[in-house]
């Protein structure tokens, strides 16, 4: 029987999972839409991953990452819960040890990670604004009636890249409509949109960072060849989209799980968690004027995790 690790990355838009062997070769990988219900998507993910490896893999360690990493970690009883910066960096330097820049654009956030000698040395994430992330591209593709999968290829056919205001998605959209009303082609406008996204990224997230090759482009938006091209034009370097760009966070989570367990044995609950009932609920504590929002996760009606309180009176179970 093969031995390996499982990594799960639950983001705002998508839920990703991989099973890797001891050398971190990907044995199984799944990409699902979170659809606003991470509990359900994590369950489906486990069922599908379990189906793919078909009980032929003994899991030595489990790791979770992404914005719902804590919930996912509690559900599958992960050995380690790690933030998405480190997991993306770890996976990038595993597949491409010479990487010095990671550009990651997901559904609702974007980040840059700077590495030197395969060690992350600096990072930044978008703060208050989601302009130029996957959700916005999704929205525009729907508005123009084009499938998101073909959106990038459309941009490559552009003859004159149109200038689109990229500071804010609302203004970008009205600018796109304005340019369309002037009679400009959809291809040119979409190319302009890709440029605007890259410009926005460079001026906010990547501001002040020294970008050196090798540059990896990861996350859902890396599927968009138009944005990749726009990055290359802007940076003057080739931008590499790694083979497992969609699930790099999940692979990273599996790698840190192997570092964490290191032969100690795993707490992983198994793929049949898919059949267990989970529930999350929130309440406002009225113990003091801070009125913290406390979030708790229940497994089969039993509270298994609680957090969100500043003082710690709820989180200690």
């Amino acid at each position: 029987m093969v031995e390996g690790y499982i990594g799960i990355d639950v983001g705002s838009i998508s839920t990703k999972g991989v099973v890797v062997d001891r050398e971190f070769n990907v044995l199984a990988s799944r990409y699902l839409r979170t659809q606003g219900n991470p509990i359900d998507s994590i369950r489906r993910l486990l069922a599908e991953l379990g189906g793919q490896v078909d009980s032929g893999v003994r899991i030595l360690g489990a790791g979770t990452t992404g914005s719902a990493r804590r919930l996912a970690g509690v559900m599958i009883q992960a050995d380690i819960v790690k933030n998405e910066i480190i997991t993306h960096a770890v996976a990038a330097s595993h597949f491409h040890p010479e990487v010095r820049t990671v550009i990651e654009i997901g559904g609702q956030d974007s980040k840059i990670i700077i590495l030197r000698d395969a060690i992350p040395v600096d990072f930044a994430m978008n703060t208050v604004c989601a302009a130029g992330t996957g959700s916005f591209l999704d929205h525009q593709a729907t508005r123009l009636g084009r499938p998101i999968e073909e959106f990038g290829a459309l941009a490559l056919k552009a003859k004159n890249r149109v200038n689109i205001a990229g500071r804010c998605t609302v203004f970008a959209e009205s600018d796109m409509i304005h340019k369309a009303q002037l009679g400009m082609s959809t291809e040119d406008i979409v190319a302009g949109l890709c440029d605007a996204i890259v410009r926005n990224y460079m001026n906010t997230v990547a501001k002040g960072k020294e970008i050196h090759p090798l540059i990896l482009f990861q996350g859902g938006v890396a599927a968009n060849v138009g944005v990749k091209k726009a990055f290359e034009l802007m940076l003057g370097h080739e931008v590499l989209v790694p083979e497992h760009f969609l699930v790099m966070g999940a692979v990273g989570a599996a790698i840190v799980a192997s570092e964490e367990t290191d032969g100690k044995g795993t707490k992983f609950a198994g793929f049949d968690v898919a059949d267990t009932a989970f529930e999350t609920r929130a309440f406002e504590c009225d113990g003091c004027p801070n009125r913290c929002e406390v979030i708790e996760t229940l497994r089969e009606q039993q509270v298994i995790d609680r957090y969100g309180d500043r003082c710690g009176k709820w989180s200690k179970l």
Partner: peptide
């Protein structure tokens, strides 16, 4: 708070790994 804790955690990890 979530965003803050993610950044702090990532920074501490980064410093440790470095």
């Amino acid at each position: 708070r979530t965003g803050l804790l993610t950044r702090l955690e990532a920074f501490v990890d980064l410093v440790k790994r470095r």
